[in-house]
């Protein structure tokens, strides 16, 4: 029972991080129909910026995370601006463009911060809480709470604001949205900026849990991407549920299958996607260009 509960706790906090990553993937896909393969590397830059501010400038964690979000949102805007000429023309080139940006960001991070990486001290030093024999690190609660708030804020933005509704309109019908006077370029730019900001938030949160290095995006990116697919690509609640499910599957398979846990996790993932090709919450697919 104790092992079960503890595995649950570990899986949930890991899942919260995956959910944040998946949200960024989903938002850009929902608006532009584009998978941003640079997303995981933006997360890495966010982790570096946040940890630099906390460790060398001694800013409070929240301020450092906010700074990281601003910096990476700007990177998101740059990526979108450079891809814009291809919008509606060559979809494959846009995808390859995002892969290219990912490689560039990794190389830049190696130049700026070195290849070695750094360990980031946890911003919350209080003792873990105990519940039914399971111990819950207080920082994990912070991560989960922030992920929840981000998800709710993003949903409200998309459903309740003019800008958000306009972005959804672009996603549903590009030509009609253009015809009614929605600025598609700006809508895409905002999607990229928010997506990058979410990645930075995930990076800032995950830094103290893991080890920050230029290649840290690799496995987090793959798990986050899998979460987005599982939830139904482009679905906001789907991204969150997908993240939590992937987190739980990896935690429990690690407990039961030890060295074979990755194999089991992604086999389960493949089977789930075969049963529901549109994901758990995917009711439609966006096909553009």
């Amino acid at each position: 029972m104790q092992v079960f509960l503890q595995t649950l706790v570990g899986g949930l906090s890991l899942g919260a991080v995956y959910a944040l990553v998946a949200l960024g993937f989903a938002l850009v896909y929902r608006t532009m129909g584009l998978v941003n393969f640079a997303h995981a590397d933006v997360l890495m830059v966010g982790a570096y910026v946040a940890s630099t501010f906390t460790m060398t400038e001694h800013l409070p964690f929240a301020a450092a995370a906010a700074a990281a979000i601003v910096v990476t949102a700007l990177i998101g805007l740059v990526i979108e601006r450079m891809l814009r000429p291809l919008e509606g023309k060559d979809f494959d080139l846009m995808l390859i463009g995002t892969i290219g940006f990912g490689i560039v960001l990794e190389a830049l991070a190696t130049l700026v911060w070195g290849a070695t990486g750094r360990a980031v001290p946890s911003p919350v030093q209080t003792a873990p809480l105990h519940l039914l024999g399971a111990s819950i690190p207080s920082y994990d609660l912070v991560v989960t709470a922030v992920a929840l708030v981000a998800m709710v804020a993003l949903s409200l933005f998309l459903e309740r604001t003019r800008r958000g509704v306009a972005m959804q309109a672009v996603a549903m019908d590009y030509d009609a949205a253009t015809a009614v006077g929605i600025n598609v370029g700006r809508s895409n730019a905002i999607a990229f900026a928010i997506g990058a900001g979410l990645a930075a938030l995930a990076g800032a949160l995950v830094g103290p849990l893991l080890y920050v290095s230029p290649t840290m995006g690799g496995s987090i990116g793959i798990d986050g991407f899998a979460a987005a697919i599982l939830g139904g690509f482009g679905s906001i609640p789907g991204a969150v549920v997908g993240g939590v499910v992937i987190g739980l599957i990896s935690s429990f398979s690690a407990g039961h299958f030890h060295g074979y846990s990755d194999l089991v996790t992604f086999t389960v993932f493949a089977v789930l996607v075969m049963i529901r090709p549109t994901g758990l919450f995917g009711e439609r697919t966006v096909v553009r260009a």
């Binding site: 104790q2 092992v3 503890q6 595995t7 706790v9 570990g10 899986g11 906090s13 890991l14 399971a134 849990l209 893991l210 496995s219 987190g247 990896s250 935690s251 429990f252 690690a254 407990g255 039961h256 030890h258 060295g259 846990s261 990755d262």
Partner: peptide, 17 residues
């Protein structure tokens, strides 16, 4: 005798055991 993978980041199950 707990075995983990090289890319694992959450060790809750192994460590609780």
């Amino acid at each position: 005798d707990q075995v983990v993978t090289t890319s694992q980041t959450d060790f809750s199950a192994a460590l609780t055991t």
